[in-house]
């Protein structure tokens, strides 16, 4: 979440003060990531410390107006050019599943299906936003698409997890189970019992 860099980009468009910057940020991101004012000022302070922004001359002393420095512009250019650092952040869902697999007495496939349902519901919501497209706001379209694609990636990953699960149990993947076909291995039998437990 690079709030400081976003603020820098906004200041590059013209000098501005904290409250306005917050409003502009939220407007541009559709209110998905709301900022509090404190966060804004903390980021501005940091930027000032690094010499990327400086207070602007303003007749009024009530609002503290900032402007971007040449060093700041350089940094901004570099930010736009280079791909962002995508080191994996901690993902709650992933953690949940990792724990569920090893947890005795818990059937991971139930967790998977619940998450899948949730993800699809979310997807439905995002998609509803797309139904009335605002053609001229490309930035908004990018944003909504990112949400959608990420949610979809999640669903796909859940599908893959489930497939692995089924294969590990020795059952057939991708085909209807013929009535009476035995599951092989003790682990399968254990898991089946476990599932019935979970359902009840």
């Amino acid at each position: 979440m690079s709030v400081p860099m976003s603020l820098l980009a906004l200041l590059d468009e013209g000098p501005n003060f904290g409250l306005r910057l917050k409003q502009e940020f939220e407007w541009r991101t559709g209110g998905i990531w709301p900022l509090n004012v404190g966060q804004v000022y903390t980021s501005l302070d940091r930027l000032e410390r690094e010499g990327l922004v400086r207070p602007a001359d303003s007749g009024e002393e009530r609002q503290r107006v900032y402007e971007i420095t040449p060093a700041g512009q350089e940094r901004l250019a570099a930010w736009f050019e280079r791909p962002v650092d995508r080191s994996p952040g901690r993902d709650q869902l992933v953690l949940k599943l990792v724990m569920a697999v090893r947890h005795p007495g818990l059937d991971p496939s139930g967790v998977i299906q619940a998450e899948r349902r949730g993800a699809v519901e979310v997807l439905q919501e995002y998609t509803r936003l797309k139904r009335d497209p605002l053609e001229d706001d490309l930035g908004w379209a990018f944003l909504v698409d990112s949400l959608i694609f990420q949610a979809e990636a999640r669903v796909r990953w859940l599908d893959a997890c489930e497939a692995r699960l089924v294969k590990a149990r020795g059952g057939r993947t991708g085909g209807p189970r013929a009535g009476g076909e035995p599951t092989s291995g003790d682990r399968g039998a254990e898991a089946d019992d476990a599932r019935e437990e979970a359902v009840r």
Binding site: R117, V120, E152, P176
Partner: peptide, 23 residues
């Protein structure tokens, strides 16, 4: 494809010939 399924009012999940879930 979940992305396209999301355009529906309701999504039904089918697994092994049964309805497993529904949004």
């Amino acid at each position: 494809d979940a992305r396209f399924a999301a355009w529906a009012d309701r999504v039904v999940f089918l697994r092994d010939g049964r309805i497993a879930d529904e949004t």
